[in-house]
Structure formats: C-alpha cells, structure tokens
Design a protein around this nucleic acid. Structure first.
Lengths: 185, 185
DNA sequence: GTTCCCATGTAACCCGTTACATGATTTT
DNA sequence: AAAATCATGTAACGGGTTACATGGGAAC
C-alpha cells in the first residue's frame, strides 16, 4: 500500500545511510562519484528526494551552523528509514536495466551513412569507451586499498562497468573488421 | 535554430524511412522487434512522434481503406525528412549512453543485505542475462541469412548486446567467486 | 576584485509511462 | 460467445532535466 516510490528515493536513502551527517551539497558530490555510473541523478532531483525522505520520516534533518561556510542541513536515516531500506533491498529486482544508446541508434541506421561517417562514429565510440575503462580502473585502484564490505561492493560495481566497456571495445574491433571486409565483396 | 528535438523523433523518422508505407500499428511492432533493445519507446510515444513528424512535413501520411481490417494511416518520409535524417546521422553523437541498472544499485548497497539475498540477486541477474543472450542470438540467427546493408547493421547491433550480456555473465561469475571466497577470511 | 567553493533552492518544461477507451474483424 | 488481432487515440501523471537565482566566505 506504500504507493510505489521510484528507486531513486531508495538510492538517496541508501546514500544517507552510507554517509550519515552529510549535507545535501555533499551528497550530490558523493552520488556523482559513486552510483552515478549506473544510477545518475541531478542535483535538483536529489534535493527533492531529501524533502520527500524527511517528510516520510525515513531520514531526520538537523541544522548545523558553520563559521567559515554557510549553514547547512545534515541528514541521517531513522530507524524506520533503515527498516524501509532493508525491505527494499530484500525485494526481488525487476532484472531489466533500462538502456538507451545514441551510438547504437545511429549505427542501426548506418546503411544511410557514408562509410567514412560510420568509421568516425565507431572511432568516437571507441574513445568514449576507452575513457570509461580509465575511469572504472581508477575507481578500482582507489578502492583496492580498502577492505570494508562497502568498498568491496563498490569495487565489484566498478568491475561491472569495466567488463562491459571492455566487451564493447572488442565489439568495435569486430564491427570495424566487418565493415572493412565488406569492401572487397 | 531547429529547437533540439529528442533522438526518439529521429528514431521514428528512420524507422519510417526503413519501412515505408507502414501503419502506426505496424511501426510499433517493428520498433519493438528492432531498436527497442537499445532505444525502447512505448506505443503512445510513437503515435505522438508520428503526429509531430507529419506536422513538421518530414513524413507524409496517407489514408488507406481496407476490407478485412480497419482503415489505417500509412507513412512515408518526404524529401525534407530524408535530408533531416541524413543531417542527424552526420552530427557527432554525444557518446555517453544513459544507463540505469536496478541490479547494480542494489548491489552497491549489498553490505546491508544478508549473504543469501546477495546470492539470489546475482542468480536473478544471471538468468536475466542468459535470457538476453538467447534473445540476441536468435536475432542474429534470423538475420544471418540476409545480406542487405540494413540486415548487417541490425546483426552488428545485436552482436553489441550479445557481447555486453556475455561480459556481464562473466562478471556474475567473478562476483560470486569473490563473495564465496570472503567467507573464509 | 574576480573567481571559485559551499549551500540551497525555484521555475518550467517535456519525455516517457501506464491505464484505459473504442470499435471492427477474424479466429477459436 | 469469447478472445485475439488490427488500429488509433485520450488522460493523467511524474520523474528527470536544464537553466537560473541567491548569498556568503575563501582563494588567487
């Protein structure tokens, strides 16, 4: 009967649970560094979820005055919030992750492009993927030192991105090989 | 000055260009079978784009009366529409594909779960990925016979999905191995 | 003295979704 | 008689985005 909240709400709840006592501003930064890779949220949205979560009584907000910076609100999960988080984590996940790729969409219509355009589309995709590989590798390196359960989870999440990007780089190779091969048929 | 239309508009435009003379109903079905895997759109949205495209003069609509079924509208790209499509295909793609994964989001908070819950999360993910492998393999098999440029593009798009799903299955293996290994530390 | 960081918020928009309505025709 | 297929559409909602506003303290 709980009106079906979006996963984003639980994402923010989980983040506050993970980083208690952080301000909205800090949470935006942490979200950008952590789960943004598989669950991006904008600043506006995060602040909206903060309001919702306090309204629901799942997190509590406390005003903190600062000397060398503006005053801020800090957040913590309540007992009710932690229970809700645990319940959400226990519910089976609708496995299908939503995915939209502008590259693949264009590639799907590549028969309407000049071969050079297709080549440059693939080249751009390759460098975007290479950047991803760098990014995920850097995250894993940074977390390699830590041995907490949270760090282990983060490392494996990054590994998921890494394996995905690597496989797609391999695909670029295959696609390029196939396109060049067809010139001689 | 062309007001920045969403990629979905061009997706539908490209589809009409690919399957000229199809009805909205048929286009919904074709979209579901083809680019839905990397660019899903609902029926309502597709019909809305049909209105927009005719309004822009990029496609023309013709009423067709049928004997054994209700009358229908059929669509074709105009010369202007084909030009717009070519222009869109020529513009560099903002490489970053948007991706949201409920599985990874939960996994990111897996340190708040019982080990059995993590196991079942991974198991569910594995079977979802296995289903994807089946799906993409089936598409590639179906297109293997055809040697048109469009079929080749579709086959490679499916291969992209296949390679991605395979890599993620491999990741599930790695994740499971790591979780079980940690029991003895 | 301008620019960057901290900190929170408002306004407007629209893409995309789900649910539902309608009605004819063909198949079971 | 019921169910599936063809065919198009309406209504309502909300999640997520971009752009912008504000204001103080710190750094260059």
């Amino acid at each position: 009967m709980t009106a079906e909240l979006p996963d984003t709400t639980y994402a923010v709840l989980g983040l506050i649970d993970k980083v208690p006592g952080a301000s909205g501003y800090e949470l935006v930064a942490v979200a950008g560094r952590s789960f943004a890779h598989f669950w991006p949220i904008s600043q506006t949205l995060l602040y909206r979820e903060l309001d919702r979560l306090t309204g629901l009584g799942w997190v509590s907000a406390a005003r903190v005055e600062q000397l060398h910076a503006p005053s801020k609100w800090t957040y913590q999960t309540t007992a009710a919030g932690r229970q809700v988080l645990a319940d959400w984590l226990a519910t089976p996940t609708p496995g299908t992750s939503s995915f939209r790729s502008g590259v693949l969409l264009r590639f799907f219509f590549s028969y309407r492009m000049h071969p050079d355009q297709v080549r440059s589309l693939l080249a751009d995709y390759r460098s975007a993927l290479a950047a991803q590989v760098e990014e995920y590798t850097a995250i894993m390196d940074k977390l390699a030192a830590l041995s907490t359960p949270a760090a282990r989870a983060g490392r494996l999440a990054a590994l998921h991105g890494l394996r995905t990007a690597e496989a797609r780089l391999q695909w670029v190779e295959e696609a390029e090989a196939q396109l060049e091969g067809d010139h001689f048929r």
